[in-house]
């Protein structure tokens, strides 16, 4: 089964304000995006499981016009607070790369 890292053109994370991190997956080919969407693996439940946050705290939005998925979740620690490891939130995407999509 292909993984996200094999089929997506962009997979990235970044702060959305100091308290949230937002993770994006983009596809260049709208047809492939639609297949991934139909597979139903990418969902709020997936992000809840991968990051250990409550599902109701995950804002998950497929964005058809950009062939993209976005998930926004609360950071472990606010940006720059004691114990933060990633002030910009730019390296929190990796668990997604190995997610398998049944196509």
């Amino acid at each position: 089964m292909p993984r996200i890292r094999d089929i997506a053109q962009i997979c990235k994370s970044k702060n959305a304000g100091p308290f949230m991190v937002t993770i994006d997956v983009l596809f260049e080919d709208p047809a492939l995006y639609r297949k991934v969407k139909e597979a139903g693996v990418l969902s709020a439940a997936l992000f809840s499981r991968l990051y250990g946050v409550a599902e109701e705290d995950v804002l998950f939005t497929p964005y058809d016009t950009a062939s993209a998925f976005k998930a926004t979740l609360p950071r472990l620690v606010p940006a720059g607070d004691i114990g933060d490891t990633d002030v910009y939130g730019a390296q929190q995407h990796a668990p997604l790369l190995d997610v398998e999509i049944p196509l």
Partner: peptide, 11 residues
Amino acid sequence: ANFALHENSSP
């Protein structure tokens, strides 16, 4: 399109 997603909680 990628940039439209930038640093915002909703696309």
